[in-house]
């Protein structure tokens, strides 16, 4: 069952730009220019794009904060803006750079207030809170006013706040932004576990590709308001011909080098050879040929970094004029 359906979703803004000393021109800018997005229940979706690509705008349209300029959208079978309050009970939202907690109150009080706002039965609320407390180690700072929490502690609080009413979908807009390594690990681990249970759909925007690699099987990349990739990370690698790297250390420089289709020698420093290997290339044959030429002391294969793939992807998409 599709829990999110958006077809040809658009959002245009009117901006005024200075044209000359006193004149101003109205110009229409498409922040989201026809995005199709279908998400099934239980999916974990990574939503990527460079700054200003339209990620947050899409999220705001899906959560009922903004009214689309065009297209059809349904979330949990509801129309986000007209059925905002009904939808609000079924989704949880975390905006990484904004807080929905009560700044001056202890975390515990914020959670209690949210119980009232979402009208969650006390027992359910307590059970969910207990789980979050265990998984996110909230107990140490549950009674400290939010304004005194560290960013990592606050983000763990935000996540809990978004989940206390048992949402079907969790929208996360850059949840790990600005966090230290340990806090990032905690958040990712928590989300991975939540996703693995399969009853919460997660839509995640981020700039941290480690989030995506750890959490999402499917990624949607948008640029200039359009979807430029929708599929698995593997498919992305395949499509952009990203290469693995094989480093072999031999006793001495071999007389002949292996010559195989899709394999290219990048560097040779003494006995240390680095090859760029296409995903389709016979890597086993390469290794056996190398062992045949001399004593293989060490061997390592590194997967291509998703950063480089995405960077290449952004460069590929031209700006619409």
């Amino acid at each position: 069952m599709n829990i999110i359906e958006a077809y040809d979703l658009r959002k245009e803004f009117d901006i005024r730009v200075r044209a000359g000393r006193f004149k101003r021109e109205r110009r229409t800018v498409a922040a989201v220019a026809g995005v199709d997005l279908v998400v099934q229940r239980g999916e974990m979706l990574g939503y990527l794009g460079p700054n200003g690509a339209g990620k947050s705008t899409t999220l705001k349209m899906l959560t009922g904060v903004l009214h689309p300029s065009g297209g059809r959208v349904s979330v949990c079978g509801l129309a986000p803006v007209p059925q905002r309050t009904t939808l609000a009970r079924r989704i949880g939202v975390v905006f990484g750079q904004r807080s929905q907690l009560w700044w001056d109150l202890p975390l515990r009080d914020s959670f209690e207030l949210l119980r009232h706002i979402y009208r969650v039965p006390a027992a359910e609320h307590a059970a969910r809170l207990r789980r979050c407390r265990d998984l996110l180690d909230l107990d140490a700072f549950l009674d400290i006013p939010v304004r005194q929490l560290s960013l990592g502690q606050r983000m763990r609080g935000e996540l809990t706040a978004a989940l206390l009413h048992g949402p079907q979908i969790l929208f996360l807009d850059e949840p790990t932004i600005g966090l230290d390594v340990v806090s990032k690990q905690a958040v990712r681990g928590f989300l991975a576990e939540l996703g693995a249970k399969g009853d919460t759909t997660i839509v995640l925007t981020t700039h941290d590709l480690a989030d995506i690699e750890r959490l999402c099987r499917r990624i949607v990349v948008i640029d200039h308001g359009r979807v430029v990739h929708d599929g698995t990370i593997e498919a992305l690698h395949a499509r952009y011909g990203s290469q693995r790297r094989l480093v072999a250390e031999l006793d001495e420089v071999p007389a002949t080098l292996p010559d195989l289709p899709g394999v290219r020698l990048e560097s040779a420093e003494g006995g240390r050879l680095t090859f760029a290997v296409d995903r389709t290339a016979p890597i086993g044959t390469l290794v056996s040929q190398l062992t045949a030429t001399g004593v293989l002391r060490d061997l390592s294969v590194t997967e291509p970094e998703i950063e480089t793939v995405i960077a290449r992807l952004y460069r590929h998409t031209p700006a619409p004029r």
Binding site: K60, T63, V65, F95, S99, Q100, I117, Y118
Partner: peptide, 12 residues
């Protein structure tokens, strides 16, 4: 500050 957005995602 985005408080308006935070308010818009609540059922009130």
């Amino acid at each position: 500050t985005g408080l308006l957005d935070a308010v818009l995602i609540r059922p009130l």
